[in-house]
Design a protein around this nucleic acid. Structure first.
Lengths: 235, 235
DNA sequence: GCGGATGAATAACTCGGTTATGTCATCCAG
DNA sequence: CTGGATGACATAACCGAGTTATTCATCCGC
């Protein structure tokens, strides 16, 4: 490991450089030759380590998914599961807003959740066990939904279906915002994303009052966490 | 009519052929040479009429928006605005399910040739044009929201915000389904999309009972409109 | 009828992913 | 210790696809 570390981690450095080039120069900067030049190797490295650009891009997409999953995971679990859901929505959106190019690739190649298990599995008893393993990021939302149900905040619906609804809404907002449909900056959060979350919470069984309080709780936690003045903690 | 009468509608035929090739062969089939061969002209036609493949792809994306807008428009307005919203959700989803490749381009998820992917489109004239078409489709949802508010089904919130919430959820579902996460066929509709719509309607102020009845009304109308086998005809 | 403008074809150019081939270092058999 | 095998990597060529240059034909206004 230590004596000759450089040789094998060319693979990791390629992915790093790919993400950096992608963030800085958009999809057009993600080229085998630029990539190789960036870390001082030849284009062959792409082929010895990945077999081609497509596989490298897949790896980049996977890196985005891993990041999303990590973001959701570090929200943690408090006594207020609905506030936790708002927290997850904020981190998810924040991650995508900070690296729109990366997540454009991530969402373009394979949506978060990976390809091994689909949500259709979640609607059948058999599929759920394997889905638990496969859909790691989605699992965080499922668990939060379970906790919300257990706490009496949500009606006793299927937590997988509740999570699928939450995920659809969150993903849709984030996607549309990244396309520029909700304007620049943070305004989309307060005007659309949070109201959307409140709407969903109410629709899933929460009271208007408690849903709004959870949204406030999450906002306060978010500010405390990001040392925020109430505006852009962007990159 | 004459041997070479309507030379100018080569432009329209190019877009038609592009959509056809896209649907049949995916993004990789969307090439200047194949496109030109398809309608029996040279690749130069792409440049005289569009200036390049990028602009042609923009036009294809715009065609997707137009189709979505048309789908939403033909749902019409009944006495039950919430049922109309469910109807719009079904047609929106149906259109995307029938031409996933086209709408992958429209939504900017897929980048034919590895080109353009994100919000930098708004800096180009064609990109703004696409955005405008998107807003037109969005307008249908806004009007339905206004009617739901006027009918006392939704609380008197800002109809634009309500519509943005509905659109986010719908778009997210459709996007994730197109990525294969809700499995093949129609199961995602009954298990996720319709419950999601009911959740949103309730959260926006509707009663559980009325929301569910509107969902049923829309389902019945949908069946009457298409084959009533319960399985919407996929292409 | 004449001349520019428009549209289109042929073919060449460029760029970028890929492949072919050779070299060098590492590792292991003997 | 040595020699062959393995595998990462460089150089350079290959090829497909977008683009551009040039030329030709047709149409329209004078």
């Amino acid at each position: 490991m230590s004596p000759k570390p450089r040789a094998t981690d060319v693979k990791d450095r390629l992915v790093e450089a790919a993400i950096r080039l992608l963030d800085e120069g958009g999809p057009e900067a993600l080229q085998a030759r630029k990539l190789a030049a960036e870390i001082g190797v030849s284009t062959m490295a792409v082929y010895t380590h990945f077999g081609g650009m497509a596989a490298l891009v897949d790896e980049v997409a996977r890196a985005g998914f891993v990041k999303l999953s990590a973001c959701l995971a570090e929200v943690g679990e408090t006594a207020d599961p609905v506030a936790d859901i708002f927290g997850m929505a904020r981190t998810y959106r924040q991650a995508v807003a900070e690296q729109p190019q990366l997540f454009a690739v991530t969402f373009g190649q394979s949506a978060p959740g990976g390809k091994r298990a689909t949500l259709s599995d979640l609607t059948t008893e058999e599929g759920r066990e394997s889905a638990r393993e496969g859909l790691e990021a989605f699992g965080h939302i499922v668990r939060a939904s379970e906790r919300a149900i257990a706490a009496g905040r949500f009606r006793p619906v299927d937590p997988y279906q509740a999570a699928a609804q939450l995920w659809s809404a969150l993903h849709g907002f984030v996607t549309l915002e990244a396309s520029g449909h909700f304007g620049p900056g943070e305004q989309g959060i307060d005007h659309i994303l949070i109201p959307l979350g409140i709407t969903l919470a109410i629709g899933l069984g929460d009271t208007v009052d408690r849903a709004e309080r959870s949204a406030e709780t999450a906002k306060a936690a978010w500010r405390a966490r990001n040392g925020n003045t109430g505006q852009g903690g962007n990159d």
